[in-house]
Structure formats: C-alpha cells, structure tokens
Design a protein around this nucleic acid. Structure first.
Length: 405
DNA sequence: TGTCCACCGGAAATAACGGTTC
DNA sequence: GAACCGTTATTTCCGGTGGACA
C-alpha cells in the first residue's frame, strides 16, 4: 500500500462549505435582497452610484449577498452598455485610512509597482489613489468589507466627495460599507454619516429554520446523497442559531464534522462527528487566539495559568501583577507597568480565554475586577509552548520557579 | 446622605521601528 | 546619511465609578 490513498467518498465538492463559495441562489434573505437591489438601481440608470451601508452580525449573509448582487449587476450593466468596475477590499487587517488607500492602490497597480505599507506622505498616497481611480473611468463601486476595523474614517468621506472636490473627473465612485458592529455607525463623524449612510440595510440574524435551509442547500452540493442525515444538519444549525444566527459558524462546523468523518473512514456524518468537530474548532480558536498575542501577552497569560493551577483564581489584577513580575524576572524580560498589564488581561477576556467579574467592597475595598481562567490550562500551556517567543522560556520559568518554592 | 476606597479606563505623550526621499 | 513619514506598543497622567459604611 502506498503512502497516499484517496479519502473515502463522502465529499462531492467540499468547497461548497467554504466561506468564499458563491451559491447560485441566496437562501432566506429575500427582503434584504429586494432592498439592496433598489439601492443599487441608480447604477443601471447611469447615475452617480449610491453609497450603501450594511449592518448585521457576523455570518448573516452580508458579504454573500453583496458578492451575488454585484455579479448580477455587472452582467446587467454590460447589457445596458454601462462601464462598471467593482473593487472588493477587506479591511480586516487594516486600521487606518492610509493603509486602506495603499491597499486599494496596490490592487489597481501592476504587481511590480506596489507600494510599501508606510513611509509616504498622506497627501501623496491620496494623489496616487485618485490617479488610479480616474484612469479606470466609468462607474466604480468599492466594497469595504469589515469597515469597522478602520479607526479613522477620512477615506470614507473623501472617496464619495472626490468628484465634487475635483479629484476625479473621469470616474464616478460609490462605496458599499459592510460592518459587523452596530455601534460603528455612531462612531462615524457626521460628515461621513451624511454621505455614506444615505442607504442603510440591516441584516437580521438567521433563525434556526433559515440556517437549516442554508445548510441543506450547501450540504447537497458538498456531500454525496445520503451522507448527511437530518439530525446532523439540525445540530449544526442549532449551534449557529444559539450564538447569533451565524451561518458561517454552522458551515464551518459541518465542514469540520465532514473532515473528521473522512479521517475515520466513516460512510456518513454522525452527531458524534459534530460533537468532535465542535471541540476541535473550539480548540483551534483558542490556539489561534494565543498565537496572536504579543510576547508580553503570553507572559501575562502564563502568570494567570500558574495562579489558576495553584487554585488562587479568581483573583484581582494586583495579585496577577505580582506574579507576572516574578515571571518576567525569571524570563529576563522587563515587566510592563500595571496599566498596560491590565490591557493584556482585558484582551484575554475578550478572546474568551479568561473571564472577569466586577467586585465592589465600597469604602473598605473599592471597585475592582476578579479574573479567572476560562479555558483548559493544559491546552493553554500547549499553545504557549508552541509560540515562537516562548520557546524554552516556559520551561526555564517553570524550572526556576520550582527551585524557589 | 455623603464620603471614600482602589481600581478602571480614556487620552496624550513618548520611544522604537520600518519605510521613503533627496 | 539626514530629514521626514506613519504605525505600534508602551508609559504617564488623571478624572470616573459605585457600593459599603458611618
């Protein structure tokens, strides 16, 4: 027998479960699509393209609907002789308008003429952006996915006004902003609110029935007939519905369950596979979270894990600070000031690795938080050991701490 | 009712870094 | 190589908070 063998045949087309898969038909978003279509109508009329804002929690079909409608719109525009260009950009790893502008320019330029992420004056970057956009001509729609990651909104009012300000003469540009964060709208300056939010669409969460329909649709494409029983679909749907009507979560879960079934050589996906898939996804969420922390974050986490192991949690930031400083000393790294250490603790809480509870002892104790570990310490230690900046460090700390106790 | 504890968390300042331009 | 540019992590400063206690 060779080293490689084909997997058992349960997947017909695994890609149909991936996030970027474009289904032929959008399920459960009829009203939203209708509103969306009328918002985009000016494009077909050859008018100034609209600025549209989409709100809704993660995995409720904002991106999928946009992708679907824009491809339809492009086909229809071609039919009516309208010169339409669409540009999609994800702002996930971007935090400023400057970086967004650079990413846009790089998308429009030759691969051998790319800009570096920093170093140029702001003005220059804007100039380049106008040049690139103007050289396209016609109608342009720019989609900013996850706009809420951008901390300053200057690009969001500069683009819609570029034509009025004489920066663009050949092109008409409209923006579609997609946001997971409802509060993002209020954080926008009034300048942006008036121009960008002319059309707003709310995407509500999917209910369990809609989720089931979506899963069924995708599963029928992804798997061979009879491989995924009803109960499995229902279980995955319930998982997504419980959290926030999140279709992406459900689809990820189903895909993972399918992978596990393949690994085990099973002929169909069972509820047990779904349970295992859930544990596995949870695990990788934590591992990824830990991997994304800075070195100082790792040290803070390490201190918290130690306190947990000793049964000292829940505990306040001050005691964690003390332990953290010991850890830093053993690791020969300068400790951070308490204010900053608290920021790292809060980050752990945000990631769901730690949790915190407010306490208030009034005049004798004041107000403070108590932190505790929310995750298996074994998994965390394992993840810490794998991170580059902690290789060898955890062991060294452990050894030297054991000696001094 | 008012006081007060002790941390919380926003904001401004600073340092270090990777980059460009002349 | 000096001046300039933007970003990020960090430090420093300081007003805010809310329940227990008198």
């Amino acid at each position: 027998m060779g080293l490689f063998q084909p997997d058992t045949d349960i997947f017909r087309n695994r890609d149909a479960l991936r996030e970027d898969y474009q289904p032929e038909e959008i399920v459960g978003r009829d009203d939203e699509l209708q509103q969306y279509i009328s918002a985009l109508q000016p494009v077909i009329n050859g008018d100034q393209p609209p600025n549209v804002f989409l709100y809704g929690k993660a995995g409720v079909g904002k991106t999928a609907c946009t992708r679907y409608l824009l491809s339809e719109l492009k086909a229809d525009a071609a039919e009516y002789d309208i010169d339409l260009t669409t540009i999609r950009t994800n702002c996930e790893d971007l935090s400023t308008s400057y970086q967004v502008a650079i990413q846009l320019i790089n998308k429009l330029r030759d691969p051998d003429d790319q800009l570096k992420p920093t170093g140029y004056p702001r003005r220059q970057v804007n100039e380049w952006l106008w040049e690139e956009l103007d050289s396209i001509g016609g109608t342009i729609i720019i989609v900013f996915d996850e706009v809420d990651h951008i901390e300053d909104d200057s690009i969001l009012y500069q683009i819609p006004r570029a034509r009025a300000n004489g920066n663009l003469t050949e092109s008409k540009v409209g923006i579609i902003g997609i946001s997971n964060d409802f509060k993002f709208r209020e954080s926008l300056s009034s300048k942006v609110q008036s121009s960008l939010c002319e059309k707003e669409l709310q995407f509500p969460a999917y209910n369990a029935n809609e989720l089931r329909d979506i899963l069924r649709q995708r599963a029928d494409i992804a798997f061979y007939d009879g491989v995924v029983p009803k109960e499995v679909i229902a279980k995955c749907a319930a998982f997504g519905a419980k959290d926030a009507g999140d279709a992406r979560q459900s689809l990820d879960l189903l895909m993972e369950a399918g992978d596990i079934a393949v690994e085990q050589g099973a002929e169909e996906v069972t509820e047990t596979h779904v349970d295992e898939a859930r544990a596995s996804l949870e695990r990788s969420r934590i591992v990824d979270g830990v991997a994304g922390l800075t070195q100082q974050g790792h040290l803070v986490l390490y201190a918290l894990v130690m306190l947990h192991e000793e049964g000292e949690t829940p505990t306040r930031a001050r005691t964690i600070q003390d332990r953290y400083e010991i850890v830093c000393e053993r690791a020969a790294i300068d400790p951070l000031v308490p204010r900053r250490m608290r920021d790292h603790l809060n980050e752990l809480a945000m990631l769901g690795i730690a949790s915190r509870v407010e306490r208030n002892k009034g005049e004798v104790g004041g107000r403070y938080y108590e932190y505790s570990l929310d995750t298996s310490p074994d998994l965390l230690l394992e993840a810490l050991d794998e991170t580059v900046d902690m290789v060898g460090v955890t062991e060294a700390i452990q050894k030297r701490l054991n000696q001094s106790y």
